[in-house]
Design a protein around this nucleic acid. Sequence first.
DNA 1: ACGATATGAATGAATG
DNA 2: CATTCATTCATATCGT
Lengths: 202, 202
Amino acid sequence: MDPQHHQPNEDKNGGANGNLLCRQTSTRWNPTTDQIRILKELYYIKGVRSPNGAEIQQISARLRKYGKIEGKNVFYWFQNHKARERQKKSLTKDGHMHRRTACNPVDYYSYKYSNRSSYASSSAKTGAVTVGHTDSLGYASVTIQDKNSCDCSAPADGRNGAARGQMTNIKYGSGADIKSQSSSYAVSGHEQEAAANIETLP
Amino acid sequence: MDPQHHQPNEDKNGGANGNLLCRQTSTRWNPTTDQIRILKELYYIKGVRSPNGAEIQQISARLRKYGKIEGKNVFYWFQNHKARERQKKSLTKDGHMHRRTACNPVDYYSYKYSNRSSYASSSAKTGAVTVGHTDSLGYASVTIQDKNSCDCSAPADGRNGAARGQMTNIKYGSGADIKSQSSSYAVSGHEQEAAANIETLP
DNA sequence: ACGATATGAATGAATG
DNA sequence: CATTCATTCATATCGT
């Protein structure tokens, strides 16, 4: 993860688009380095995590100066960035660096990506209480995922109660609102160039 | 999901379940194409948005012929579908003042059919409407809202938390469950409603 | 070339 | 309902 993977040539429509190979229905947004820079700045410096519709449009508009972009791209970017940061943290904090090249029992699927989901049925998950993580909104979910899965077969067979309603309600009383570690970064005012180089941030 | 997105392993053994690799194949519901088709049909053509408990059961029962499914899946599907349709609108507010130097055969960029309350024309009955393509978040809803027969939509949308409460808690008791009151839906043999090209709907 | 990885996109499931 | 989390699919890109 050190090597700042990805980061195509600086050329990618650098400026305000203009020429982007008319015809390449890449369908997939490919952020420019400037866009990435700004997004990370917003994420790490401003602390933006889950911008709402208005914010997204605002950000989107701003990034549009650096290349084609839509609101959904911004939305997904933050969504993914947060999720992956957490995932990474969760995995790292798990105590061991989980080396995928060995702990993969069987890949009962020809999934070419049998990685990153290696902790699926391990101990990491399973009713783990995930808490504490900086967040602009300061909330934390307690994911008490229990739900005895392992019920393969005979799914809708016996008209089980599921059909009648009641869907696994995990009614844990206290909502657990740990909002420690408030993200009080640079509330002083100017933080524009405060952070040295965002490029090297995670 | 226009191109060929998503559509994992063809586990979608059309309803006859039979065997599904009792391998904890993800505890999460994986709708079959037929189920999706019907759901979209209900959503776009019938105008179903927030089915109540009884309706959910009916729909669920009907979809069960095409694969394992539970009431909560139907419930969530409608929830999500509606929510996302809205969200897209929220994120798509961006003015598309982009230009393309006249080299744009396929428009991977021409969605945006912002309608919403745009009572589709005057006499475009027959509910069979087909919107062109519709890229991911691009979105394009049909808003037929015709239902000139068989009113399957929620009754006044009474917001009676029935569905929710019933699903979220195990209190579906208190009598009066959803019996098998021959509903309005023709839960009969085959489907294949000759509707529109729902597959291409958002 | 291929495989691993990073990351955009999509969507089921929850929670508030 | 809106917001968020978790998982998974799809694909661009890079290392060997």
